[in-house]
Design a protein around this nucleic acid. Structure first.
Length: 775
DNA sequence: AACATGTTCATAT
DNA sequence: TGAACATGTT
């Protein structure tokens, strides 16, 4: 459920994006939410307890979709129930059961549609179903993990540790947990909304300037969350007001009790603190240490074994079993797989010409043929998507994915069940007391399928080395697992932006930078949004794209379209088709693409940026990494080298020269651009790591329009952030909402969780906040 | 007037 | 299931 009203509250910092933008990266996925529709489709079967392949098939199609866009999805499943939520869960279950009953009766009564509607509410994906899916994921070499308890903190943990570069989910709770990059509302075209934690300070609905993660979290809890109901008449707005005024939950509660308008339960503060501690310390699985760790490293004075509501500790061995899906996260019993009824129908229909269908999951494991191979040679893929897509899903990926020029930046694949005997495996829950409460009744930890997989699964073997490579590649910065979980430390970040921006130039000057008509904004700006004009990307798009309805008419476009039509006769030049991921026949041989589309055809740039960029990167710079870093500078924090600084404010703004170039700009949020430009102007050395040489042609390759290609006018990325306001907010003297004056005390409050870490992260860098203090 | 809360509608499957 | 709308309360 999450925090209701949170997303609307953050409307202004939500940025329309495209999944393609993250091509080459690993994105965490809230499996339950992501696959919910799939569960809906087989609600009846689920309700009847029939085993079904529908769910698994749906899930795998979504995986293919992600890969189609160049994404490696890292699926995270929910695990056991948290005590904090136990009540909720049991009541939910009751409701489900009722719905199920009603639905089944309706079904008997011959009212299938009504029944289905009812059964949709009864959807319950069992660990067994999830496990079936995991078998497929293993085969497809898709990283996944079952959280010991909740998927949300697990996802954010993975993000912090650098295993994933963002999170796909609809759950606003992730922001409360401190997710840095949240991608919501993902549709079949790969369109989605991006919410970056670092943009919070630009929120227009409510001022979050200077807010720490702790304050944001507390605000969210006050407004009502999964762990604690809100006080009457306490919504987000009021809780925000209270937090802004009183700064700490203690004071807020005291004030609430003082003025009698609110009915505050006697133990509310206690419950509040428990809720917050649940947010902070609940158990997650650390892929590196292969054991449970607290989501946030507790300070010495926090005794995790005195916090029953964060869930019980689980022995590493059991936790590993749960993480891999071998053990039921609730019962801790080994999950026994019964064979699924039928082979994949979908696959069968699509790939009739391919070898005989696998009969059972285990049998399939022996086959090294990835599912995607069944799609080879089918043409029904939309145009430009082909090239990257092919690379990504090429069956050869099992053995030489890297060679294809498409390499996931983060491919941790921390499969605990593989290298489990690591000497460091005990490093995880080190300081914590093991509570064997959940009996070691596990027969054997490893289940047969896994062994099977290990022994003969070509892909598992192949992926092992990569995993290691990537692991070391990815993790170094954040090595100590959880130790420096400091995503916090926000204020400095902002400070830096201000610092950089204001140090060199007067506000007015800066403003002129962004608002000056000099930026070739001759083109008309549509819609009267005030902030529209501040976004260069729009202009670029408009400049390059005279008319998106008729974009196939341009000379360049024509050429491209022709090419794609050749490739993909079935497709019209409808924009939607361009973007849409077509499940049925998305894959083509990379060769054809290579042959057909010249690597550096600049012509594609304008409209089919996705294609062009992918092609160019694969042919020119090879590995996706360079493409990523160059193309989307805002992601810089994700690369290993920079992740060290990721906890440092605006590390992402310390962009390489590219950030300054107009072409790269559209990839960043307006805010980010602000920082980047400011930085560039002040000639900050910034992260040298990013001085990665990039193909000179890149700028001309239409990167700018990448995320701006409108499918329909509504999709034209309207930069939601008003730069003027941002500036105002950051103005030392200006805005009334600045919380900076109190930021110190806030730090103190939050100190326990990120004291050491923030220090470590900031290193020698000293950020002077004093100038942002009220005079 | 602003906000919290309850209800309905649309959408996708 | 979420988003838009309508209502009730301060």
């Amino acid at each position: 459920m999450g925090i209701q009203g949170l997303l609307p509250l953050l409307k202004s910092i939500q940025r329309p994006t495209d999944l393609k933008k993250y091509a080459g990266e690993t994105l965490g996925v809230d499996a339950y939410v992501w696959l919910h529709r799939g569960a809906v489709s087989c609600a009846i079967e689920l309700a009847q307890g029939k085993p079904t392949r529908k769910y698994v098939d749906f899930a795998m199609s979504r995986v293919r979709m992600a890969r189609h866009f160049g994404i490696t999805p890292y699926l995270v499943f929910d695990g056991g129930y948290l005590p904090s939520k136990a009540i909720t869960e049991t009541s939910r279950r009751k409701r489900r059961d009722e719905c199920k009953k009603v639905g089944l009766e309706l079904l008997k009564a011959g009212k299938p549609s009504q029944a289905h509607a009812e059964l949709q509410k009864a959807i319950d994906v069992t660990p067994e179903m999830a496990r079936h899916l995991m078998e497929e994921l293993k085969k497809a070499d898709v990283p996944y993990l079952v959280a010991p308890y909740e998927a949300d903190p697990q996802l954010v943990y993975l993000e912090r540790q650098g295993h994933i570069s963002g999170i796909i989910s609809e759950d606003s709770d992730l922001l409360v947990f401190g997710a840095k990059r949240l991608l919501t509302k993902l549709d079949q075209y790969g369109k989605c909304i991006e919410i970056n934690r670092r943009d919070f300070c630009a929120c227009r609905e409510v001022s979050l300037t200077g807010w720490t993660d702790a304050q944001f979290r507390q605000m969210a809890i006050f407004s009502g969350c999964d762990y604690l109901d809100s006080i009457n008449n306490m919504g987000l707005k009021t809780s925000h007001r209270m937090m802004r005024k009183h700064k700490t939950p203690e004071r807020v509660v005291r004030m609430l009790q003082f003025d009698g308008k609110y009915r505050v339960p006697a133990d509310y503060l206690t419950l509040f603190q428990q809720a917050e501690q649940t947010f902070l310390y609940q158990w997650v699985f650390c892929p590196k240490t292969k054991g449970l760790v607290n989501f946030t490293v507790p300070s010495p004075e926090v005794k995790v074994d005195e916090l029953p509501f964060i869930g019980s500790f689980i022995e590493p061995e059991v936790a590993r079993g749960i993480a891999t899906g071998d053990l039921n996260p609730i019962s801790k019993q080994k999950i026994v797989l019964d064979t699924l009824p039928s082979p994949r129908k979908r696959t069968a229909s699509v790939a009739a010409h391919v070898a005989p269908q696998p009969r059972t999951i285990r049998e399939t494991q022996a086959q090294k043929k990835p599912i995607d191979s069944y799609f080879k040679g089918h043409r029904r893929i939309p145009l430009g998507e082909m090239a990257p897509n092919c690379f990504v899903v090429d069956p050869a990926r099992l053995s030489n994915m890297t060679d294809n020029g498409n390499r996931s930046i983060v491919y941790p694949l921390p499969r605990p069940y593989i290298a489990e005997s690591g000497p460091g495996s005990s490093t995880g829950p080190r300081t914590y007391i093991n509570r064997p409460e959940s009996s070691p009744r596990i027969l054997r930890r490893r289940t047969e399928p896994v062994t099977h997989l290990l022994s003969d699964g070509g892909h598992s073997l192949a992926s092992e080395p990569r995993r290691q490579t990537m692991g070391s590649d990815t993790c170094p910065p954040n090595n100590s697992d959880g130790s420096e979980i400091a995503s916090l430390v926000r204020p400095p970040k902002k400070a830096r932006l201000c610092d950089d921006a204001s140090s060199g130039l007067s506000p007015s000057k800066r403003r002129s930078k962004f608002f000056s008509p000099g930026n070739a904004k001759g083109k008309a700006i549509k819609k009267g949004e005030g902030y529209l004009k501040s976004d260069d990307s729009i202009e670029d798009v408009l400049k390059d794209l005279p008319d998106f309805d008729g974009w196939g008419l341009t000379v360049k476009g024509q050429k491209e379209v022709a090419v794609y039509q050749e490739t993909q006769p079935t497709n019209t030049d409808n924009t939607k088709d361009d973007e849409k991921y077509v499940e049925s026949g998305p894959y083509q041989s990379p060769i054809s693409i290579h042959d057909i589309v010249p690597p550096n055809t600049p012509s594609i740039a304008d409209r089919f940026a996705y294609t062009s960029s992918a092609t160019s990167s694969s042919s020119t710079s090879g590995p996706g990494r360079s493409r990523t870093s160059s193309g989307r500078s805002s992601l810089s924090e994700l690369t290993p080298a920079s992740s060290v600084t990721s906890s440092t404010p605006f590390s992402s703004y310390t962009q390489p020269s590219t950030a300054k170039t107009t072409p790269a700009t559209p990839r960043m949020t307006p805010l980010q651009r602000l920082g980047a430009q400011a930085l560039g102007r002040s000639k900050q050395p910034s992260t040298p790591t990013f001085a990665v040489p990039r193909p000179p042609k890149r700028p001309s390759l239409g990167r700018p329009s990448l995320d701006s290609i409108p499918v329909n006018p509504a999709f034209v990325p309207l930069p939601p952030v008003d730069l003027a306001e941002v500036e105002a907010l950051h103005d030392p003297i200006g805005s009334e909402d600045l919380m900076v004056p109190d930021s110190e005390s806030d730090e103190a409050v939050e100190g326990q969780e990120n004291l050491g870490s923030s220090k470590g992260a900031m290193g020698g860098k000293k950020i002077d906040l004093s100038r942002f203090r009220f005079a």
